[in-house]
Design a protein around this nucleic acid. Structure first.
Lengths: 324, 324
DNA sequence: ACCATGTGCTGACAATTGTCAAAATCTATG
DNA sequence: CATAGATTTTGACAATTGTCAGCACATGGT
């Protein structure tokens, strides 16, 4: 006995919910609200409410044709230059970096469902971008999808953790979720090793190596990057890795310009996917935006685990420029 | 290509088509035309043009959620095709037949109260579907409604009888109930005739002919149909009626493809409403679901006593298909 | 029986969006 | 480089859509 039963029933029009009736007339038949109000014998204001409800309930789906963006000249250039399967390049707009990031995240959220198929096992990394994507994904239902958390959790000052990223993503995809119940980095390599051998963690890590698709962002090696501010690496760690040639961060691992993981002290203390497990996936979706991400993105792509990219036109232009 | 090259290029935003920029801002970012005009430094009217172009070129996709869409479309088609007052087509879902039936029954239960008005006299048939509807109806109170049992009772192996159907229906509707205190079918025509003349039964049958609305399901002529398994007709009876052209069962009476009652030996032995009394009611609500019910439903509709239908999208589709 | 509360509906007004003819701009050509 | 012809942009106005406070009615609790 939902609220709808108290609602008026559309007279001779239909037995279906009057909300759907109104939505149909408006979006399908192209009638305007005044006409609909007359037909349904309610006030126009009520029609407005019905339409709003229809939108809120997700009866109405408005989407921008992805082909338009993926086939943009820049997207095409990215594909050819970097050997990608597809690229989604969307207008940066001229808002703040914050706004640009949100836009890219929403674009990725729009695109992601069409990259997934029933039975997929999707690995999800962590970060501000990933979090926003998880939030922006519309409720969709693809049969039998599993979402796995690619890296351990961190207590962040931002209020979103790796667990929340994967959990929200799973919820919105109607997928089952495999979390990684461990910190991303421990203070002692030995403890990390023992933790990795715990049966629970073992199984979760095993699940990671069976992912066939992955979603990640590129991290920069700036002193104010997430990798430091989240406490995953210390400032000293960062400096050391940069001295070894680090140009970016991927799933918590430092990589050089060739996209190769840089071995270092952190490796043994971390719990999460290793970069060799990201190789050869059906889909490796890299989502990032901003000047600072250009070099890290290029590094990640050089490493060979990226098949799809979502970014802004400005960043895309810089990437192409930097790559000559 | 000619047109777009002359177009202004979005300031620092992009070398890409300004049309897409505008469409993105409008449909994705939710900005209004005034804001977009300011950002793109064009007049608002121009933004209107861009958006129109985006729609014309198919960049924007507006659709009703598929389930809702098909449901509603089918309902509309049913109405037009069969001249119904209204149809309620709900998603069948992908459960078992059992679940689909429950769903349809649930839908009918939700809908029925809105089809009733104070003072109505509702005739209720019998069957698994009707039973579930009676159970699923939420307690509602419509003034001065009377529920009448349309056919006599049978001892069934299912545990629900015609009496229970109407009694539950009446209870949940807050209506008074007129049961038919007689078996649905007797072994001897003479005994049936005498029973029909009994004052008590007489009054109850009279009440039936004063119903202004009715609720019934369509029965199939399959050997394993309810009409046989409930003992209302023997297997031999069924075969005989099928040979006479029976394509369905309505309120215990066999009908042909035109919806006409087929005269036969059973008629004289039955206690219950005759089909001519179902003609011209304000509401004749037919509720059925399943492949086996398609032909019976079409027959019932052809007979002219059906004004409203509740069914699943799959069944509706088959009905329309079968009707050409 | 009464009142408090919640929910849906409505009318009047505010904001947004669509239309159209005229002006501005571009392209091609003599 | 002037001009016709086509296309794009624009401002003013018209139409449509959104908002919100208040009303009507049903429900649940005292």
């Amino acid at each position: 006995m939902a609220t709808s039963l108290r609602r008026r029933t559309a007279g001779q029009v239909s037995g279906e919910s009057i909300v759907i009736e109104a939505a149909w007339m408006y979006y399908h038949d192209g009638l305007n609200q005044t006409e609909i109000a007359k037909l349904l014998q309610v006030s126009r204001a009520t029609v407005v409410n019905y339409l709003q409800e229809a939108r809120e309930r997700g009866y109405i789906r408005i989407s921008l044709a992805p082909e338009v963006f993926t086939s943009h000249q820049l997207a095409q250039d990215l594909r050819e230059k970097f050997g990608l399967q597809a690229a989604f390049v969307l207008p940066r707009g001229k808002g703040t970096e914050e706004e640009a990031l949100m836009r890219v995240a929403r674009g990725a959220a729009d695109w992601l469902p069409s990259l997934l198929a029933p039975g997929d096992r999707l690995g999800v990394a962590w970060g501000r971008t990933i979090f926003e994507i998880a939030e922006a994904i519309e409720q969709t239902n693809i049969a039998d999808v599993t979402v796995s958390q690619l890296v351990g959790s961190m207590a962040t000052p931002y209020g979103f953790t790796a667990e929340i990223c994967s959990a929200h993503m799973a919820r919105n995809l109607g997928a089952t979720c495999i979390n990684l119940h461990a910190p991303a980095v421990l203070s002692d390599p030995d403890l990390a090793a023992r933790l990795r051998d715990e049966p629970i963690i073992r199984r979760q890590l095993d699940a990671l190596s069976h992912c066939n698709k992955a979603l990640f962002a590129a991290g920069s090696c700036d002193p104010d990057s997430h990798i430091v501010s989240s406490g995953l690496a210390s400032r000293a760690d960062l400096d050391w890795y940069v001295k070894q040639g680090a140009t970016g961060v991927l799933c918590g691992r430092f990589i050089d310009a060739e996209g190769q993981a840089i071995p270092g002290a952190l490796d043994d203390r971390m719990i999460g996917i290793t970069l060799d497990n990201l190789q050869g996936l059906e889909v490796g979706l890299l989502v990032s935006e901003g000047d600072a991400k250009v070099v890290p993105m290029l590094s990640a792509i050089a490493g060979g685990c990226v098949t799809h990219v979502v970014t802004s036109n400005e960043t895309a232009r810089l990437m192409l420029q930097a790559a000559g």
